[in-house]
Design a protein around this nucleic acid. Structure first.
Lengths: 259, 259
DNA sequence: CGTTCCGGTGTGGTAGGACCACAGGGCGTG
DNA sequence: CACGCCCTGTGGTCCTACCACACCGGAACG
């Protein structure tokens, strides 16, 4: 239960490694607190990020440079960077010039999304829990959405797109998901927007399966369109409680699909 | 135990172009959809998980075995496994015997937690958003908590621990965090419990800084203890709305600290 | 017969070197 | 001036060889 090194708590287990053995595994300086080498990379980058020496949009030093700087092998540096990529903190690109190399990004949604998918796959995260959470987040977001938020225009455009005749079901659902995410973003909370985005992604296939259980898709789609318009109007201040409307909207869909 | 490759006929054929192109390096004519090799490992394990061939508690094949099976190098296999570890899907342990090797776990909280920390560090995730989200999740959880949930006993024990005289501030905060997480878990939603746990972890240092701005810690601690008891009683049905109480509890703390 | 010790074995962790595919940028040639 | 080739730096991959670790079974000892 080591609470040392508070600024970077990735190392949960001691896992006392091999590097303090005289000179073999490199880094004779020691004092890594039992951290594996790739975690060393993680905590270093976290510190650089927190100190402002690295910022979104900048490029990370090359893998070889990172490895040399931290006295680890390139493989260890790569492992750390790989984790960062999975967390949506960086984006790797080959070649040279702008856009190449490892660039710092800020995409919390990918981190949550992929992790959620895995835990759903391992049957330790019931889909009902995700749906329930989604309902909670969206209801809150609708209640706090600002009519003047830029994403509200995006939402309006998506509504028009969804009116296109002969739209395939999958395409409709995709636009639907984007619409809901746009609403969540209109509340101005980055975290909740990211969570909504991840949640929708992790239950996307599930939602598609649900549509096949509907009695008549066209009728449902028409109703969804109308409800979307009503929610959008309500956020604009045109009568009605957005939170109530969106809660009914979501619950109605799952109920009709036979939840 | 030999795991079989997801049928797909061409498993016998070199799935990896590494063997075609003069036996060097990967993916010349990739039929892997442009997927990097470590992503191949990820999708394979996800498939095995979804198919039930891998389950929580079981051990993953050794890194060397995974590498050979997917026709990738051990380094690539390790990168994939490292990502899984960061997502809380597996846990790596050296040595032999039970507990050693790469064991499948289910710990969504670590994934969200570490990712959140990084995005806070990169200044793309305001702490206020996290606090706001925490308030939302906890209020909901308190309103849906079951008095008979096992974690309610844990919560009660934590309350007693917090009554210990001469408790250090940091230790009190640690117990406090565990208490709130226990309450969230009592609502029975795995995802929300995991999110709460991550959120608390990612703002832990921030909370500790806040305490230094309080006029008198002892007074505040006494008030927090009383409020905790009241919330716990309310969930047990002993009068009062748990959601209202916990919302006031959280908001009160941040207000007193000068939010 | 029980106990202790020691090496074998399999696991993750690490290092280092090598090569490939890619994308620019600079320089040379037309 | 324009075109095209090579040089350079980047991530991506592979291989091989180690180390540290923890169990486990057989050998040696009391």
């Amino acid at each position: 239960m080591r609470l040392t090194l508070p600024s970077s708590g990735l190392a949960a287990q001691p896992l006392n490694p091999c590097f303090r053995s005289l000179h073999v595994c490199g880094r004779t300086t020691g004092y890594d607190g039992g951290m594996r080498n790739h975690e060393l990379v993680l905590s270093w980058i976290e510190a650089e990020l927190a100190a402002g020496r690295l910022a979104v949009g900048q490029r990370l030093p090359g893998e070889r440079a990172v490895a040399e700087q931290l006295n680890v092998s390139r493989a260890s540096a790569r492992e750390g960077i790989r984790v960062l990529e999975a967390m949506g903190v960086v984006r790797a690109g080959v070649g040279s010039g702008p856009g190449a190399g490892t660039v710092i990004t800020a995409n919390p949604a990918v981190a949550l999304g992929s992790a959620l998918r895995f835990h759903v796959a391992s049957s330790h995260l019931p889909v009902e829990d995700i749906v329930q959470t989604r309902l909670l987040l969206e209801t809150w977001a609708a209640g706090h959405a600002s009519a003047t938020a830029p994403s509200m225009e995006t939402a309006a455009a998506l509504l028009d797109d969804m009116d296109a005749p002969g739209l395939a079901t999958a395409e409709f659902l995709r636009l639907d998901a984007l619409f809901h995410v746009a609403l969540a973003e209109a509340a101005g909370n980055v975290l909740i927007g990211a969570m909504m985005s991840s949640l929708r992604g992790s239950i996307e296939t599930y939602t598609q399966q649900l549509t096949s259980r509907l009695p008549d898709w066209n009728t449902t789609a028409e109703r969804l369109r109308a409800e979307h318009r009503a929610i959008h109007r309500a956020i604009g201040g045109d009568g009605g409680d957005p939170a109530v409307l969106i809660a009914a909207h979501i619950e109605g869909f799952y109920r009709e699909a036979g939840l």
